[in-house]
Design a protein around this nucleic acid. Structure first.
Lengths: 328, 328
DNA sequence: AATGAGGATGTAATCGTTAACATCAGATGC
DNA sequence: GCATCTGATGTTAACGATTACATCCTCATT
């Protein structure tokens, strides 16, 4: 209704200068007389004053906002990472803005511009698409952090996440070790950095690219379902399928169920991420566990690091784990 | 690295005043000569200039940020609403900040203060907890919007969502119609406004409160699971269970599976929300469909509405739908 | 009593943008 | 030729906070 009280209103009411009020709200209380502190506190309370983050940001040329760009906020794994980051950031006094790129390069670039406009303290990208604008921003701002997928060749910026190649490798080796046949890899979109790292690792693991059926796929249940339908109807076999994430695996599984196929007797399915739904809704899914909740602290640490930390592209590699369950 | 260019830098480079540059970036281009437009455009591009949202917000005493407070961002239904709102807001030039209250009153109040500090254009609450601070804010700022759960008695603010009482009523009537017995209601926490509206509706629907076993529960799978274990072990019966949301229903179902109970022969389960996972992972779940994707446009409309819209607590009631599947 | 130290507080410039108002050049009307 | 108008652009005072620097006061010291 009425516009919010400013530092000046508080100063006037408590009979001090704006400088003193500012000191009070920036925690420099040991330089203020106790009586003054009390009177400022009172006045602020009476007026219902909250310092304007905007005024402060302008003055300090530094906002407390961190922008997180995600390809799909309804992906449970993505959401887990976002929650973890948000809560870690709050711990160091920062807010998180979440925005969806919808796996769309133009949309991503628009959002990057927005983030720049907000003078974001940092920009965290879960699944970035390689565009000129992105490269420009990395070079000029140097406050971008790549989460879960490494930046493309030639982009120097810190990365937080597992080693996707090694994870793919581990799955591939597991396939060999167990003697699985009819390998299928449903991998993520090629425009995502590191989306293919998993695939490359997997191929290195099984040791023979020519025997791997490869499909490029969006990271959705729908896509997994469709790939499965095509595959299972055209050339039914006992496939061993490595899916780029759990969503794709869910979709694949559903198609298999509809055809009365059983895991692991008629079909082997591997997912990736081990999002928290698995425990409840897909306790059958063998997958690679990525520690979603460790992203927040790692990213917070990176942001608090003095600038040089960004510039030399320091990264934090998290551990992964093969989670073997019924489907393999 | 280097600090970002300002409007002054652009003005200097293109040889015009800051006012002209400002006009260009606020879209008042029809008052500028075409040649000037071009030179400003060029200069901005060369410098990589993006207007500072902070400077603009300060000057306009109005930010373009909308804060959304959610009790649990990893709940898929919540995430769907958030995505819908975010995308609708982007359509009208606003950004969304997402924050988790973690179902915690103190945390909610802290976040409300943060939102106030950001001078948020609006604050959207998915599941608000009734606190003095909340009431104060509603009265003083008048820019709060309640989503999915109505505000408590005495709080006048717009609401977007279904009529929870009517939905509960429909479920209760369906129970009667189908002749279900052994009614159980696992309802949400009492401190959520409207959490009990569903329960009250349900009781009105079945018509006899004394025959309804009631449990208060957090909105989690874990909680649903635990309630189910206790109930099914202590006094096994063919229960007909109305869960406060789908998560609770998932947990309940898992416990039932572990005991080799089948739906609907040994057990009837109703969920609530019909989040998008159901289609893929829980195609058996009977539930009340709440149109998550309609929240965004509705909320955007409310925010664009001139102030009086807020003040008289105008609301948008969305339709719901009983989605009967295998579990009932 | 004069000096100085040091603690508490005030003054004022500044951050990047917008917009009301001022200015100015050229076109128009008489 | 002068007044007037119009369209393009410039000048400048905000917006709300922070902070370097200045000031003032009180004591302690000599």
């Amino acid at each position: 209704m009425t516009k919010p009280p400013t530092i000046r209103d508080v100063a006037r009411l408590s009979g001090v200068s704006t400088a003193t009020v500012s000191r009070y709200f920036s925690g420099k209380t040991d330089a203020i007389a106790p009586r003054t502190i009390e009177s400022v506190r009172q006045a602020a309370k009476v007026l219902g004053y909250t310092p304007s983050e905007i005024g402060r940001s302008l003055r300090l040329a530094q906002s407390r906002v961190v922008v997180m760009l995600v390809p799909d906020a309804t992906n449970h794994f993505t959401a887990d990472i976002a929650v973890s980051v948000e809560s870690a950031l709050k711990g160091i006094g920062l807010s998180m803005v979440l925005a969806n790129t919808g796996e769309n390069a133009a949309q991503q670039d628009r959002l990057l511009a927005d983030a720049q406009g907000l003078r974001a303290r940092a920009i965290v990208l879960q699944g970035a698409i390689d565009t000129p604008r992105l490269r420009e921003l990395v070079a000029k701002q140097g406050n971008l952090i790549f989460a879960n997928r490494r930046p493309a060749q030639g982009i120097v910026a810190p990365y937080v996440g597992i080693d996707n190649f090694q994870a793919g490798l581990a799955v591939g080796r597991y396939f060999i070790e167990r003697g699985y046949e009819n390998w299928v890899a449903i991998h993520g979109p090629r425009h995502y950095f590191g989306s293919t790292a998993r695939l490359d690792g997997f191929i290195a693991g099984v040791g023979d690219a020519s025997r791997v059926l490869q499909f490029e796929s969006p990271y959705t249940m729908q896509a997994g379902y469709e790939h499965a339908c095509r595959l299972l109807d055209l050339a039914p076999k006992k496939y061993s399928v490595f899916c780029a994430n759990d969503m794709i695996a869910y979709g694949f599984y559903r198609a298999a169920m509809e055809r009365n196929l059983r895991v692991p007797d008629d079909l082997v399915i591997f997912g990736f991420d081990d999002n928290r739904l698995n425990e409840w809704l897909a306790p059958w899914l063998t997958t690679v566990k990525v520690p979603a909740l460790e992203f927040g602290p790692a990213i917070a640490k990176l942001i608090e690091m003095p600038k040089p930390g960004f510039e030399d592209g320091r990264s934090i590699i998290l551990p992964f784990e093969l989670k073997v369950r019924q489907s393999a």
